[in-house]
Amino acid sequence: MMPLIHHGAFLIIRPALLYHINDVVQVAHPYYGAIVKRIVWGDNTTGFYLAGDSNASLSVEQMGCISSNQILGKVCWIINPK
């Protein structure tokens, strides 16, 4: 998630009732485990598609469709290392 989130950053994550495109969220992914990605498409009924900000990140297709109950919370605050 570079350049937004640096390696070792602290994140304050809070569950939300609704999630929106462009939200950075924590996801319990069935294959990749606990990951942080950005919502690039979808909504709370159809499911969400996510992508990383970095070019080296996984593609939307690799991550697949994510349901809202797999999203554990929205990143509210990022404290990057100085």
Binding site: V36, G52, S57
Partner: peptide
Amino acid sequence: MLFKILSKLDSRCHFSRVSAHCDIPC
């Protein structure tokens, strides 16, 4: 400053980890 405080707290409380780099930029 805040990062240092959180780092110290983390060393005691062990916050849960998440990965932002799930693809290996090898």
